[in-house]
Design a protein around this nucleic acid. Structure first.
Lengths: 132, 132
DNA sequence: ATTGTTGCAAAGAATTTGCAGACCG
DNA sequence: CGGTCTGCAAATTCTTTGCAACAAT
C-alpha cells in the first residue's frame, strides 16, 4: 500500500507510515482534526497532515467522504472492498458502509445529457439506533 | 414563496427580495460568490448574504448542492419539480438536473443497519459535451 | 547528489460574531 | 413600538504558501 505512493514518485517516510497506520486502524472515515488528534497534536504538524492527505488523494490511495455540512472525512481505499457508500449518523457521527452501489441508471441519464468521465458522490444521513 | 419565510417568523425585506429574485432567475445552483456578484458586491453585504442563506435554508426554501470539492451551491427548492439530483461539469461548472431519484435500495440497506430519519446527498460529476 | 518532505511562521480564504442603527409589521 | 435585519469591524476557523533544514533513494 505504501508501494502505491512510491509508484507515484512519493517517498515513504516515518511520518507517512504513522499516518497510514492511523488511517488503517480507523474503521471509518476520519476528519482532519480526528486524524491530527490520533497522531498526537504536538508530534505531527497540521501542515504536514494537509500535505500528506493531499498527496495520498493524488495517489488514489485515499478517498474523501463528506458529512452533511460538507466537511471532508478521509478513508483509505480498500481495494478488497471496492467502491461503496456510507450512512452517517447526523448526531453522533457514526458511519457504516453500504456495500452495493446501484447508480447505473443515474450515470445513464447523465451520459444522455452529454457528460462523460463520470464520478459521483453519495452519502446517506440519518439517526443511528443508539441516537434515537 | 416569500410567504414561507413569513411563516417562519422571518421578515420580508427589500434585501431579501433581491436575493430571492437572483436565486429564482438562476437556472442552476449558485455559489456564495456567484450570488454576491449577481447582487452587486457593493450593494449587498456578504455577511448579510450568509445570514440570509442560513435563514432560507432553515425555512426549507433553499437547498444545498455541493461541488466535487465540497463547496456549497444554493438553489431554491422548486416544489413543482420535486426532489432531484445533478450532474456537474468538473471543468466549467455547468449543472444539469437528473429527474429520477432511485435511491430506495440504499435507504432500505441503511434502515436495516438501524438508521432512521434518512436523507441523502448525491451528485454526479463529469465533463460536459462542451468541455471535452 | 538529487529531489521530495517536514516544520515553523505567516499569508490567505471562508465563515461567524458583536453591536448599534435602520426597518418590518 | 418591539423584535428583526443590516452593515461594518473584527474575530475565528480552516487551508495554503514560502522557505530553510532534513531525509529518502
Amino acid at each position: 500500500m505504501l508501494e502505491a505512493l512510491r509508484e507515484h514518485g512519493m517517498r515513504i517516510t516515518a511520518t507517512r507510515k504513522r499516518l497510514v497506520s492511523v488511517l488503517f486502524e480507523a474503521a471509518t472515515p476520519l476528519s482532519v482534526e480526528a486524524i491530527h488528534r490520533k497522531l498526537g497534536r504536538n508530534t505531527f504538524d497540521l501542515v504536514t497532515l494537509y500535505r500528506c492527505l493531499g498527496a495520498f488523494e493524488e495517489a488514489s490511495v485515499l478517498q474523501v467522504v463528506r458529512d452533511e455540512q460538507g466537511k471532508a472525512l478521509y478513508e483509505m481505499i480498500d481495494t478488497a472492498h471496492g467502491h461503496h457508500h456510507h450512512v452517517i449518523c447526523r448526531k453522533c457521527g457514526k458511519i457504516d458502509c453500504l456495500d452495493a452501489c446501484m447508480i447505473g441508471p443515474f450515470e445513464d441519464a447523465a451520459r444522455k445529457l452529454g457528460y462523460e468521465d463520470l464520478s459521483h458522490r453519495l452519502e446517506l444521513y440519518g439517526l443511528c439506533a443508539g441516537c434515537r
